[in-house]
């Protein structure tokens, strides 16, 4: 037991009017200690050392990646089709997003930008140095 309850001192418990409390505390102590011996024939060593790494699952739906079992196509049941669309949206929000800018254009633009930065960097160095001197 890690949590310690406040206990009455022995001298107090020995007083005459504390007889009932003393008996109760003794009973509680007996109860907690008696558990191990009481169930010793039922609790096996295996139960004590059993680890929880294996989770049993009685259903296939958690094993296989199955579709939702209620489907509608070509407007047979608009309510179900709306739910199906919502599911597709929520299931892959970060799937293949449509590109506004193709990879090639991005590469060319970035290259041009980097060149600009490099050319900008050299004249920029001097004002930075000047600022440092001020401090």
């Amino acid at each position: 037991m890690t949590t310690k309850r406040p206990q009455l001192p022995k001298s107090v418990l020995e007083m005459k009017f504390m007889r009932k409390t003393r008996e109760r505390i003794e009973k509680e102590l007996e109860n907690t200690q008696g558990h191990d011996s009481l169930y010793s024939n039922i609790i096996t060593n295996e139960m004590r050392h059993a680890t929880g790494n294996f989770i049993s699952e009685s259903s296939f739906i958690f094993c296989e990646d199955l579709l939702e079992g209620r489907l509608s196509y070509k407007g047979m049941n608009p309510e179900i089709e709306r739910l199906m669309e919502q599911d597709i949206k929520t299931s892959d929000p970060d799937g293949e997003m449509q590109k506004d800018v193709s990879d090639e254009i991005l590469y060319k633009k970035m290259e041009a930008l980097n060149k600009k930065r490099k050319s900008n960097d050299t004249p920029n160095k001097n004002p930075v140095l000047k600022k440092k001197k001020k401090f």
């Binding site: 259903s59 209620r70 509608s72 196509y73 070509k74 049941n77 179900i80």
Partner: peptide, 17 residues
């Protein structure tokens, strides 16, 4: 199956496990 049927005609389906 469902992918090849879904564009053919309107239908609705509920599959119970």
């Amino acid at each position: 199956l469902l992918n090849s049927l879904k564009n053919e005609w309107p239908f609705e389906l509920a599959a119970g496990m």
